[in-house]
Design a protein around this nucleic acid. Structure first.
Lengths: 218, 218
DNA sequence: TTTCAATAGGACCAAATAGTCCATAAGAGC
DNA sequence: GCTCTTATGGACTATTTGGTCCTATTGAAA
């Protein structure tokens, strides 16, 4: 969470530490507010107040609201990938996948299913409204899925997963179950459907594990 | 689509056919616009213009924007359930499930994955903003899942599905895969991930079919 | 210490947008 | 045909909100 590079500006001749910190405060406030209220329902005044800044600072660091939102998409994407990298880069076993599932479920259950996935909710809200944001989000999802599929590849290479299992498709399916789970949990304000959705995906992957006893069946 | 009851008002002493038609036009316009732009990004003036009505009519039929949105939630929910009932009430076989999947995928591919599911996108946008809308959406999802689980129950009762298969959980998982698929397809502007997500769920259900040859395996 | 760009404060502006109101038309029931 | 409620048109208002601008302050480099 305390990663300054994530908020680093794009192109500016000279920038001070103080400026970077302000930019970070703005992005952090936008991140929190827009997760709860959604992008369009969050006003710049909300962000200004929550970030303890002023209008001129908002417009000093971002050309307009759209630019701020696009920066937030990258910011949040970097945070999620950072978190997920920590949880997935050592994935080598089915139980590792279960631990990953448990961590996501537990985090979501702390909110009773509210807010959903920061990336998923932005994706639905922005995809048909801002092509640049959509494509950025799409790349982040791809990178996220790659973290999963890399782990599945490791499992397949080590003989845990059957050779005919398709790590890329499994990763997409798992991400679908995760995002759908977030959505249903958000609608229900209850984490339960997220668990069910994820467990179906995990059961499917389990069925593709090489069985120590007997031949695996279709 | 041309179902007037769906737009029927809640409580009004007297209402004429003309009034009902106007109300329907407003809801229909709101339905179309808010599917594309989202709820918060759609203005009442947009709706007024698209529905060929006037401000006084909007406020004659709905107390305020929130009421209109809540009515739209029910309206859209009724439309989706009507459509899904048609596709699911005779579900009795795995191939029926595949046909259902194909219909949804095909419809979504016509938009190249855009817009997503009318219910899912509203759920993410409104759930943390309007408790009444959230609970209404949650009920609709439950009814939708019931249509699926009823079909799965029929399959289980007829011996197609293994006795230990849990229709309710499978229905939730399938709905999760569907909603997650919609979301990923929307982010990618490509229907492909929706297919992958749904197929993973279908594969899982397939693995729970009673095998004509040999004993089914875990 | 001086200088000057970067940073910050906050009043102000203009457009968008939700919502009000009143006059008029339409049409159902008597 | 008369009457009275419903339905409609659209101007108008108030508020919200994105965005501008001018001034002051800070702090790093010369």
């Amino acid at each position: 969470m305390s990663d300054e590079q994530v908020a680093a500006p794009t192109n500016r001749r000279r920038i001070s530490q103080r400026g970077i910190a302000t930019r970070e405060r703005i992005l952090d406030a936008a991140n929190r507010l827009m997760l709860v209220r959604g992008v369009n329902a969050t006003t710049l005044d909300d962000i200004r107040e929550a970030s303890q800044t002023s209008k001129s600072q908002l417009y000093h660091h971002f050309a307009d609201k759209q630019e701020l939102v696009r920066a937030l998409v990258k910011y949040r994407g970097a945070l999620v990938l950072q978190r997920e990298r920590a949880g997935l880069e050592r994935l080598r076993s089915f139980s590792g996948l279960v631990r990953w599932r448990n961590a996501l479920v537990q985090a979501n259950s702390l909110n009773n299913g509210k807010y959903g996935c920061g990336l998923g909710s932005m994706a639905l809200e922005l995809s048909d409204q801002d092509e640049q944001a959509r494509s950025s989000l799409s790349e982040t999802f791809a990178a996220w899925e790659k973290l999963i599929s890399d782990g599945l590849h490791r499992m397949r290479d080590s003989g845990l997963l059957r050779p005919d299992a398709d790590p890329e498709k499994l990763a997409t399916g798992l991400m679908g179950a995760l995002q759908g789970g977030y959505l249903l949990a958000n609608a229900a304000h209850d984490v339960a459907p997220m668990e069910v959705a994820l467990d179906m995906a995990l059961d499917h992957i389990k069925s593709l594990l090489v069985q120590p006893s007997g031949e695996p069946t279709r």
